[in-house]
């Protein structure tokens, strides 16, 4: 049974492209809404993040509902277990349904200690796997702890995976737990290393969960360098960094530079995705290029064929 466009495409086995929106520390969503409008023609749905890095932003459920209402873009609401206990999460799942949200991504969430409200109590009553289980219980069994929900929620639930994870086997086995909990799709962390990605995707293929591979098209050399330096566990390949640097230094005309970055992203991603698709390891792509919506037409080209 499909409750959303994403659900329908998962059911039909169509190749999926999703995007990502990161609301910030503001009650005004106009920038995020603008970005959503720009990516809407190209993606099936977009994630709305839940205070990443523990840095407080506008509530992700509120933002999800408003963006979806204002733009018509289907939202994958990111729900972390960091800030709310099981009782609260269950209430939010019903609230999400009532607000028209039909997809949820279950995440652990970055620890409060990393963010800007460090003194907050870290909750972690559930974890990402048991939150998946809770959603499936509420949706499929129409109950919580055996207590009936009069009008039950209908949401598709996804979870995350990290192909860069070391030890990889621990991560792969964890996906097995999420599969057992009833996860309906996986979105991965950003990948750059083709061999590692293939190894990981092969290891989790047996769980029969559709996989959307995380990509991070890089808008500029500064972003690429920052990503390489500041995102733990993810390395941007040296030759990619060098290429981005050349674009920055060699091309001075702004418009030509933008086009060169877009083309460079295409040239890096196309063979990567083609290879994984030919190996039948992918069901879609999740693009985390926040504040870079103009790349989407190129991404559509990347995943074509």
């Amino acid at each position: 049974m499909a409750y959303s466009k994403l659900g329908e495409m998962l059911e039909k086995g169509e190749f999926i492209l999703t995007g990502e929106l990161e609301p910030e520390k503001t009650c005004d969503l106009s920038h995020t809404i603008q970005e959503a409008k720009e990516m809407a023609p190209y993606v099936v749905a977009a994630n709305v993040t839940d205070s990443p890095l523990g840095i407080v932003t506008i509530n992700s459920l509120a933002a999800s509902a408003i963006i979806q209402r204002e733009t018509g873009l289907e939202i994958i609401w990111q729900q972390t277990v960091r800030d709310v206990n099981k009782l609260g999460l269950a209430g939010m799942i019903m609230g999400a349904h009532a607000l028209g949200i039909r997809n949820v991504l279950s995440l652990t969430g970055d620890h409060t200690n990393l963010g800007d409200v460090k003194e907050s109590k870290p909750v972690f009553d559930l974890d990402s796997a048991t939150l998946v289980k809770l959603v499936r219980e509420m949706v499929d069994k129409k109950s919580i702890n055996g207590h009936e929900i009069e009008c039950p929620p209908t949401l598709h639930v996804g979870a995350a995976a990290n192909p860069n994870s070391n030890p990889m086997e621990a991560e792969a086995l964890k996906i097995g737990r999420k599969a057992e909990a009833g996860v309906e799709f996986i979105q991965t962390q950003v990948v750059y290393d083709l061999d590692k990605t293939i190894e990981f995707l092969k290891a989790i293929r047996k769980y029969n969960v559709p996989i959307l591979l995380g990509l991070f098209p890089m808008k500029s050399y500064g972003i690429a360098k920052g990503f390489d330096t500041f995102v733990p566990g993810v390395d941007v390949p040296k030759d990619v960094l060098a290429k981005w640097k050349r674009i920055k230094t060699d091309i001075t005309d702004k418009k030509a530079q933008k086009e060169a970055y877009d083309q460079a992203n295409y040239e890096f991603l196309k063979p990567f995705i083609t290879e994984l698709k030919s190996k039948k390891l992918l069901d879609g792509v999740h693009c985390m290029a926040v504040h870079y919506p103009r790349i989407f037409p190129k991404l559509v080209e990347v995943i074509k064929g």
Binding site: T108, D127, S128, N162, P167
Partner: peptide, 18 residues
């Protein structure tokens, strides 16, 4: 650090905790 029942979480890098 999160007292999880089903870890490791995505905050683990090369066996270390975020």
């Amino acid at each position: 650090a999160k007292g999880l029942m089903n870890g490791p979480c995505g905050g683990m890098v090369d066996g270390k905790c975020e």
